[in-house]
Design a protein around this nucleic acid. Structure first.
Lengths: 97, 97
DNA sequence: CTAGTAATTAGCGTACTTGCTAATTATCGA
DNA sequence: TCGATAATTAGCAAGTACGCTAATTACTAG
């Protein structure tokens, strides 16, 4: 269920566009979306930057609501809330029609 | 003519999403788009932050290609390249369908 | 030419972001 | 229980972003 309650559109835009501002986070989002779900390690190994750095990017994406995470054993499985993201992007695209 | 030659999609995304990351710049873009064109002074007076700060935001938006500017006398008239922006946003929205 | 207006550029301080390595937490397997 | 593995958190250094005021550029008008 994307779009948490009590978050205004303005705050949502701020969070989402801040999250998208970093190329690594855009790539992570694409990667998770296309793979369906993804373990933190899979993501970390696929990227050039260190695992802790990736971990922080993941945390930010979860905070923003663009990723969800569930803990399975000692692994964290991430999945993309793609609908939220595409809704926000299309809504903003619509402002400029 | 939005989308300058020789700029890859990746660079374009970087520029556009960086530009959109700041709330003042999103507001400026909306404001100019809805008004059609806008003088720098009109924009500066409408916002809370100082004119030089707004000026710097405008410069960044021009650099990114999201705004165009033409000099008329001592005034600068800005207009929005809205199609470029909505194209990029919709393209990215499409990646997450 | 001079005073005034439109706007940008210069320069500076603060705050945030992002990268790293080292340390820590939590879990699995033998 | 002990060692290895998955992942995050802590802490720090470097770079970038953004706000301001002061100075500068460029043009208009008298």
């Amino acid at each position: 269920m994307p779009k948490p309650e009590g978050i205004s559109d303005v705050e949502m835009a701020d969070d989402v566009f801040s999250a998208l501002a970093h190329p690594a986070r855009r790539q992570i989002l694409l990667s998770v979306h296309y793979r369906g779900t993804c373990k933190a390690g899979d993501i970390a190994h696929r990227f050039e930057c260190s695992w802790p750095t990736t971990s922080r990017h993941l945390a930010k994406l979860v905070e923003t609501g663009l990723l969800s995470v569930s803990k399975i054993g000692r692994e964290r499985v991430y999945s993309a809330n793609s609908e939220l993201l595409s809704d926000v992007l299309r809504k903003w695209a619509g402002y400029f029609d």
